[in-house]
Amino acid sequence: MQISPHTGSQLVDLCSALLLLTCFAIVAQRRLSACVDLFALQSAFLVLTAAVVAFLTGNHHIYIAAALTGVIKVVIIPRVLKKVIERLNVKRELVMNVNVPAGLLICGALVMLAFFITQPIIPLGFLLTRDSLAIALAIVLIGFFTMIARQKAVTQLVGFLVMENGLFLGATAATYGMPLIVELGVFFDVLIAALIAGIYTNRLQDAFDNVDTNHLTVLKE
């Protein structure tokens, strides 16, 4: 089957736009389990994007990366996080460092920033699509912002994972995927990070009866 390059790039654009949309949904969502669900959805979109890129470019190792993403980020990590949430009995984020509407506006500004920064790169012409790189950068920035804006360890972890998704999208869209071995390494890193963070959250709960990372300030004494 053949797809015209124009349609192909539009398809990638659309998928990456969906990734960005889920980012905003995460920023606007207060319920922890819904945040995790949205992260799983975002990862699913990432799988789709990677698969489309793999199909368009014919780089078969991207299929493997996509499949791994599917297994780890759509299935395993969300499950672990859900377990953690269930055990902690924390349903939602009540107090945030930045309130939701302000956070949304800041994220909107971040997206614009990402677009302006990547503007000079577009004419170089090696990118598959016009805006995937900008979206990838925007997702990384928004993930980072989520880590700053939220107080609960679980949502901070989600922010970290979102950042990772952004990086993966950038790698696939801009350079047609990293070498397979690097990708494998990254996946294991992420998996281990998620597991460690899960354990750390549990420990936090045990120590403070709370998963509010603000309590960590007490440790300095």
């Binding site: 905003f24 606007a28 939701v100 949304l104 506006l105």
Partner: peptide, 11 residues
């Protein structure tokens, strides 16, 4: 409701 309509604005 501000959260929801904020999302609409950003979209």
């Amino acid at each position: 409701v501000t959260d929801l309509l904020g999302v609409a604005f950003i979209l």
